[in-house]
Design a protein around this nucleic acid. Structure first.
Length: 529
RNA sequence: CGCGGGGUGGAGCAGCCCGGUAGCUCGUCAGGCUCAUAACCUGAAGGUCCCUGGUUCAAAUCCAGGCCCCGCAACCA
């Protein structure tokens, strides 16, 4: 059956990092979700079956303490936060296919299966750890926590030297293998400078084995080790696993077989290995070192690519809650619209370098590129078609077809190379070309001369069709705007298929709708001034 | 010798890996147009590409040295 065939084909699987719930959503979270969403939508638009996963990281000391401080059960506390985070993702028009939470049974079961397997295969060993422990903060302190005078800050309270037994994962054994893997898979870490950074780290340091447990006597909010219930799983081991636990829980055949966790369950979609795992530069080490070694030990292939993005600054300064130097994504979305926000963060910054958010820059791009460029093009094109032809689409003409094809080809090629910023630049090549075309052909002059009626038809067709194609090309980036363009063209379908970017989609005789400003200008003087 | 990013016309950036007319956006100035969201189009001015030295026929680009700026406790992508 068709259904079976569809289920059996490997899907394009993308992930973001999962968010630690014990914090507020900010610009960085929004950025990561949006760039991943653009990639996901672009793949779907090209006809791929996509699975896009994001989620929440809910275990750990801080959550346990915060819940306790509010006098609430940890799970109840997390449920409230997770709802906030999911609403945040939805507000950004992000099309994740599922949302994994590390407190869900489906996640925990697979984590335990992984732990059992690795334990049985001798990947873990138990060893004592000696260190300085703050009973007040309930955490071990490191040498970095010492003040210059050698003492620990009084805020840590009483500090005692403590010996604690824990389980360790043998990372060392796999160090050379990982170096070889990264060197033989040059696309594994994107962009290249991050790859070089990881290689430099691996070649100049000896990996310490990773502690993967915490005694439940001091941290209960975690996943118990299946082979020793007096411990819970270290949060990073727990969190990283999400990328495979969710597919495994859904019945991914490769993972179920490797982890031995799918017995008796129906076979689900083929997701693993992930095609792209999008993360921030701060957690490269976890994803480019610990995570590949975990997978290797599990006997599971590595993701095809880690896409590492940079951080945002605000006005050239680090964003910081304490100084109030922050950008609230929801406030911007509420004021300017979700598409203006999506557009800005993708257009302003290539994936990799750090970026700088300025309100002036945001406003400048909004007005120059969205309002005056794209919005005005649609408005003038549709206005003239309505005014001179009563909104009836003339016979097709292909004067701008090559420009449209160029924008389509270039933008797609850029997206496949993770160059989303360049894709938008290519698309704006068509916006600018079409605006120039209006000026060069001057349809508003032809309209006054009946002898040029046939030529006017051609020009009006080229403009309307260019607008339609722009809607298709922009779908991954600003889907709401794409849909509005289609609505103004009075098209009943959704511009969510790249195949619709083929020139000639508008047919003669079709009647378009009324133009309406896509992005109203905001810099007008106040009324009465 | 801690690690990393960066210093390019007024502002913000690309180019540097794979040396050879220094490109983009905004701003400024001048012209054009009037379909359109006072939007659009064309042109112009404006740069010791941080400094010094080296390699080369040729360096923003490669090499060496130096100066300056920004991140690297925590929240956190």
């Amino acid at each position: 059956m068709d259904q079976t065939v569809r289920c059996m084909s490997k899907r394009f699987y993308l992930t973001t990092a999962i968010d630690y719930v014990n914090g507020q959503p900010h610009l960085g979270h929004a950025y990561e979700k949006i760039i991943t969403d653009v990639m996901a939508r672009a793949q779907r638009s090209a006809g791929a079956e996509v699975f896009f996963l994001t989620g929440a990281d809910e275990h750990g000391q801080k959550v346990q303490q915060a819940a306790h401080a509010e006098g609430r059960a940890a799970q109840e506390y997390c449920d409230g936060l997770a709802a906030t985070w999911q609403a945040f993702v939805a507000r950004l028009d992000v099309t994740n296919d599922d949302y994994v939470r590390t407190t869900q049974p489906r996640h925990k079961e697979v984590v335990q299966a992984i732990l059992s397997k690795l334990y049985a295969e001798g990947q873990f060993y138990k060893a004592p750890y000696r260190g300085f422990y703050s009973t007040k903060e309930e955490t071990f302190l490191t040498e970095k926590d010492r003040r210059p005078d050698g003492n620990f800050d009084p805020s840590y309270g009483e500090v005692v030297e403590l010996v604690e037994e824990n389980y360790y994962f043998k990372l060392k054994d796999h160090q050379q293998w990982l170096i070889d893997y990264i060197e033989s898979h040059p696309d594994f870490i994107f962009p290249e400078n991050r790859k070089n950074e990881v290689l430099g780290f691996l070649k100049n340091n000896t990996l310490e084995d990773l502690c993967i447990s915490r005694p439940s006597s001091r941290l209960s909010w975690g996943i118990p080790l299946p082979f020793d219930p007096t411990y819970v799983t270290y949060v990073w081991f727990d969190a990283l696993s999400n990328y495979v636990t969710l597919p495994a829980a859904l019945g991914d055949p490769l993972l179920c077989k490797a982890l031995g966790c799918g017995a008796g369950k129906p076979v689900g979609p083929e997701l693993w290995p992930a095609d792209k795992q999008v993360i921030g530069k701060d957690i490269v080490k976890f994803h480019a070192v610990y995570w590949p070694i975990m997978l290797k030990a599990m006997g599971v292939p590595l993701p095809k690519q880690l896409v590492v993005h940079g951080w945002w600054q605000k006005d050239g300064q680090k964003m910081s809650k304490s100084t109030g130097n922050v950008v609230d994504p929801l406030a911007v979305v509420n004021e300017w619209g979700v598409d203006a926000f999506r557009y800005y963060v993708v257009r302003e910054l290539a994936i990799g370098p750090d970026g700088n958010w300025t309100d002036a820059g945001f406003s400048a791009r909004y007005h120059a590129e969205l309002a005056n460029g794209l919005g005005n093009l649609l408005n003038r094109s549709l206005s003239m078609l309505n005014r001179y032809r009563k909104g009836v689409v003339p016979q097709p003409s292909s004067e701008l077809a090559k420009d449209a094809e160029k924008a389509a080809a270039e933008s797609w090629a850029a997206i496949e190379k993770n160059e989303l910023q360049d894709a938008l630049v290519s698309i704006w090549g068509l916006v600018n070309r079409a605006n120039q075309y209006v000026d060069q052909t001057a349809p508003f002059k032809m309209a006054k001369d009946p002898a040029q009626s046939a030529r006017l038809d051609e020009v009006l067709y080229n403009l309307a069709e260019s607008c339609r194609i722009l809607a298709v090309l922009l779908w991954p980036f600003i889907p709401g705007t794409s849909a509005r363009i289609y609505a103004q063209l009075n098209l009943k379908t959704t511009p969510d298929k790249r195949s619709e970017a083929q020139w000639g989609g508008l047919v003669a005789g079709h009647v378009i709708g009324a133009p309406e400003a896509l992005f109203p200008r905001r810099d007008q003087p106040a009324a009465g001034k």
